[in-house]
């Protein structure tokens, strides 16, 4: 039982990353009917931006070697600033990568995403070099034990922040005017501009929100796994894409839920079977799910509208 709960916590943390990244894929699909394949690399860039801002804030808020503000303030600033900067990056990607191709064939737009991804990876490699960076430990890790189950303050923080961001996104899309505009846009991209809401505002906004969430995931991820490398977004990006499909295209709730489900499948397969077979078995299970539910958990056969 202890063993099960320990793995449950592991899966909760691991699923948070998939969920946060999958949201970006699903939102963009809902609005523009295409997957932004650069999304995994936006996550990577977010982590690197987080590294930069974390070092920056630690530097300006410290006198000598002692920090004058508590670690959590620096952490909040780091997450917010990297989300903001990554949102700008998302809007730039939309502007130069997708807007000129909005009426081009879908395949061209998919290729654009891959190209932007490669540019981000190799650009990082060219600017920062190939060495790995260690993410600073902004808050001290505290390990607790409760009945044989070990957990850290970071683990709780990661899951809590991830859930908070998902709830915030839910409220935004459901309650605000701009959220309504996004839902309307995915419902009818031709009629909504006639009502005075431009695609050129809604699309960048979607990219900005998705990229911001990816950057938050990047910073949280770097806290849990503090070794940064330029290719860190590739694998995770692809798997989060699987989660977005599994959740149902355009479904916000689906993407979040499927992210956690994917995390749980990966962790529990490794718990039960030899870990060598983890991905083989985990992704066979997902293939089987998709065979029976080809549109994912919350997907609909002939629509990919943005839904909650």
């Amino acid at each position: 039982m202890v063993y099960f709960f320990q793995n449950f916590l592991n899966a909760l943390q691991w699923g948070s990353f998939y969920a946060l990244i999958a949201l970006g894929y699903s939102m963009v699909y809902g609005i523009l009917m295409l997957f932004n394949f650069a999304h995994g690399d936006v996550f990577m860039t977010g982590a690197y931006i987080g590294l930069g801002t974390a070092l920056f804030f630690t530097m300006i808020f410290s006198s000598g070697a002692v920090s004058v503000v508590p670690g959590w303030i620096i952490l909040v600033l780091t997450i917010l600033s990297s989300m903001a900067l990554a949102s700008i990056l998302g809007m730039i990607i939309e502007r130069i990568g997708y807007r000129p191709l909005r009426n081009a064939p879908r395949a061209s737009a998919a290729i654009t995403g891959l190209m932007i991804g490669i540019i981000l990876e190799t650009g990082n490699l060219a600017i920062l070099g190939a060495q790995r960076f260690s993410f600073p430990s902004i808050i001290d890790t505290v390990t607790w034990e409760a009945g044989g189950i070990f957990f850290t303050n970071k683990k709780i923080l990661i899951v809590a922040v991830a859930l908070f961001l998902m709830a915030a996104l839910h409220v935004f899309i459901k309650k605000t005017k701009w959220g309504m505009a996004m839902r309307a846009m995915s419902y009818d991209p031709l009629a909504v501009p006639l009502m005075g809401v431009s695609v050129n505002i809604v699309a960048p906004m979607t990219f900005a929100i998705g990229s911001g969430l990816a950057a938050a995931a990047g910073v949280l991820y770097s806290m849990a796994y503090p070794v940064l490398d330029p290719m860190m977004g590739v694998n995770l990006g692809w798997k989060a894409f699987v989660a977005a499909i599994l959740g149902g295209r355009g479904s916000i709730m689906g993407a979040a839920l499927a992210g956690f489900i994917l995390g749980f499948i990966e962790i529990f397969v490794a718990m039960i079977f030899p870990s060598t077979l983890r991905d083989l078995i985990a992704y066979s299970i997902i293939l089987a799910i998709l065979t029976f539910r080809p549109y994912g958990f919350f997907g609909q056969a002939h629509s990919a509208q943005l839904r909650l």
């Binding site: 063993y3 320990q6 793995n7 592991n10 899966a11 943390q13 691991w14 991820y221 849990a224 796994y225 070794v227 290719m231 860190m232 590739v234 694998n235 990966e266 962790i267 529990f268 490794a270 718990m271 030899p274 870990s275 060598t276 983890r278 991905d279």
Partner: peptide, 20 residues
């Protein structure tokens, strides 16, 4: 006798198994 594949960053399930 636990394993993972290149580029994996999360070893929590393998390590939980090892500790057990």
């Amino acid at each position: 006798y636990e394993s993972f594949t290149t580029n994996d960053k999360d070893f929590s399930s393998q390590l939980t198994k090892i500790i057990k």
